[in-house]
Design a protein around this nucleic acid. Sequence first.
RNA 1: GGAGAGUUGGCUGAGUGGUCGAAAGCGCCUCCCUGCUAAGGAGGUAACUGGGCAACUGGUUCGAGGGUUCGAAUCCCUCACUCUCCGCCA
Length: 415
Amino acid sequence: MLDIKKLRDNFDDVQTSLKKRGYKIDKSLFFSLEDSRKELQINVEKLQAERKKLSSEFGKLKASSKDTSDLKNTIDQLNVELESKDSDLQELLTKQNNLMLDMPNIPDTTVPEGTNEDDNKVLSEHGKIISTNNLDHLEITKKIDTEIASKLAGSRFAVLKGDMVKLQRSLINFMIDCAIENGYEEYYLPYMANENSLIGTGQLPKFEEDLFKASEKLYLIPTAEVPLTNLFRNEFINEKDLPIKVTSHTPCFRSEAGSYGKDTRGLIRQHQFEKIELVQITHPNESMKCLENLLNNACEILDKLCLPYRIIELCTGDLGFSSSKTFDIEVWMPSQNKYREISSCSNFTDFQARRANIKYKSQDGNNFVHTINGSGLAVGRCLIALIENNYDGKDSIKIPDCLIDYFGSSTINVN
RNA sequence: GGAGAGUUGGCUGAGUGGUCGAAAGCGCCUCCCUGCUAAGGAGGUAACUGGGCAACUGGUUCGAGGGUUCGAAUCCCUCACUCUCCGCCA
């Protein structure tokens, strides 16, 4: 959520910024709501003050057992007026709030301008592309089975067997250990979240169709970002405790509505996948530095796994709803002959903090924190990358050195 | 699933109709004392929000939403959540 004061005072600046990401604010709507709000609010508060005063006089008259009927009449009339004005005001505030909840975050001034992903900027490429293999992961190993998964649950699910499960488990443990080493505290979390949590991180109300609803009140989490960030919802944090770094491995559930026909083969786009999430709760002055730190933490994993990847900076038109600045990490997928997203690291500035009411206390008063998060990493996609990049073209997949202790062997025989 | 108790400021916790945005304690901040630390003393310290250049000055909030009342933390109703005991259970 944006700061409404910013809109009141610098509407044109905000409008210009949001335009860069393709969002249009209706200026006349905003100010017509705002003008009525101001007038009504002043009016209502005046009436409330008056009632307060008269009620206390009423009490005094009562105490000295004097006649109160005239005063009661006055107050009754006042209450009728107050009630109608107040309900107008409430209606208006709801409209205004809905308008605010619909607005995306303001892109950071350093974000390159653009209209869609074609305008994203490649910042750097890392590692050597050595694989000449063009078989995809389903062709390389039979231990990933999406057909049998469709019997169990439908399309966009997978069943893993034997070595592949163990490899996935090794990746998870390796990634979590990296995060811990980098100062993140590990959490085990609920895989379902309530509505308020999802509003806090920005999935609701606008993106309900992307979620799986598990019951009347609970949704399956689309990412551990939701529970990790909401750990701090409605909390005050001591300034000296910032930044707070937390991590968790969870499954993630996404309906992938609107991606029909896209990435239908294999593990790349599933309703359910494993992910390690990194979250930092930071001081506003430090957040960009923390974003770089988090990005490095994520890249480090690919470095250690010796997988080729590149870093992309998203342009204004491709930024996620809540994000102010985002770096994507894309890993090389030999079978597709291109890089695919494996992590998205974002600075949400105070956008989520405002929605989730996460503040820090400092000498100059209370202020909203900035929230940062990114995958560290998406496990399913990492598994694909590992299989496809490390396949020898004949019968085995090489396990990177950093995983050998976790996996217990230096190769997987695929026959 | 059955029975009961609770939800108040950063925390603990008092408060059953106006003098309560709220006792007390803890914590925190400022100052005094002290060679330093500890202890001690004085004062300050809820959040959100409106108007105003500002000084300042209004309003809202005691889990949420309704109701009663001139007036509600306090009375009534509904809901959510937490805890305890019993039952069941990985």
